[in-house]
Design a protein around this nucleic acid. Structure first.
Lengths: 186, 186
DNA sequence: ACACATACGGATGAGCTATCCGTTTCGCGG
DNA sequence: CCGCGAAACGGATAGCTCATCCGTATGTGT
């Protein structure tokens, strides 16, 4: 899927690197910025990534893949409740750590099909873990599949609103999630 | 604080009305829009409300005042836990019902001092109710004052991410809050 | 009715997104 | 090594929104 010509491939990588930097700095990711910091023309950036969202989703893809991977692992755990709780913890930690992930998670319409696939997979895994925990009687029966993502987004948003420098966010997010999990537990 | 001249006062009201309409429609509140729909020049709108935030906060003020009022009432309730829970319910319901409130609540820096005052008051009431419930042993001791607003914002955000048309939001928000409250309860 | 203050309106500029097309670079076959 | 066609580059430019500024119009006290 990456371009054929060497320079194009190199630039693609470079743009992605710069974008990752900007996202990590907390900058709103403007394609002009990316172009300038990458030392490339605006046109080049736009050809590789037609919109800001496309770039953002591409930046977030590795993280989404990592989360999907963790989901696979979680399914192999013995304790249904612990597997469920661990998975949610991963999801929240990911979002709190990575600004790109938050935005991608909160968007209903994706521009990359890869993103849609990964989100679907993450959701499906969550649903399985939820079902397992519910069948084991460890999670309340009124929790629905499509509540999981919103709740995770809610927690990272709460953490964000709570303020504090990004460094201190993880403990806050864990605390909030812990509270939520107590509420979800049967 | 409203302008002196009659036409100015009339326009001020008119702008506010139009802004309220736009917010209720879910439109992102652009001052150019407001001007056009109010049949006024852009300059006029900008003179009355120097920034989008100023207008937004003014739109939200009545709701904030209502919430502050509810807080006063809640303090007179007998059951500490119920008073606390009811208050949080009010806060969430407000945010879910009113798009202006969400944005104002989530912003740390206010442009209107009135907004800051009201938010401080709402926060202070929440802190009192929390302290009372904690002293009664009905709420977990590790919940902090400055967690309340973030958590409420988190719930309304979760509700928003969950999607569904605005009409169906209230039940979802109540469900989420219920879960959270179970987690907060000692 | 006059004059001054106050307020209005829209032309204008600044910043960002996104496009388009002339120019440059790559890499393959001769 | 050279030339050529395709692929990629770069930046000028159009469209859009936010915000300002100032000449003009309107309200208000004398």
């Amino acid at each position: 899927m990456t371009p054929q010509r060497k320079d194009a491939a190199r630039n693609w990588e470079h743009i992605l690197t710069v974008a990752r930097e900007l996202v990590d700095e907390g900058t709103p990711l403007q394609l002009n910025d990316v172009a300038r910091r990458a030392g490339l023309g605006v046109g080049t950036v736009y050809r590789h990534f037609p919109t800001t969202e496309a770039l953002l989703e591409t930046v977030a893809t590795p993280c989404l893949e990592a989360l999907a991977g963790h989901g696979e692992q979680a399914l192999t755990h013995d304790d249904p409740w612990q597997a469920f709780a661990d998975y949610l913890t991963r999801l929240v930690e990911g979002q709190v750590t990575d600004a790109a992930l938050v935005k991608v998670a909160a968007t209903a319409e994706d521009v990359l099909t890869r993103t849609t696939e990964l989100k679907a997979q993450i959701l499906a895994t969550g649903a399985k873990l939820l079902a397992r925990a519910r069948d084991a009687g460890t999670v309340r029966p009124d929790v629905r599949d499509d509540d999981l993502v919103p709740l995770m987004c809610g927690i990272s948003y709460a953490t964000y609103v709570h303020g504090a420098n990004p460094a201190d966010r993880l403990p806050t997010a864990r605390r909030y999630l812990e509270t939520l999990l107590r509420g979800l537990h049967a």
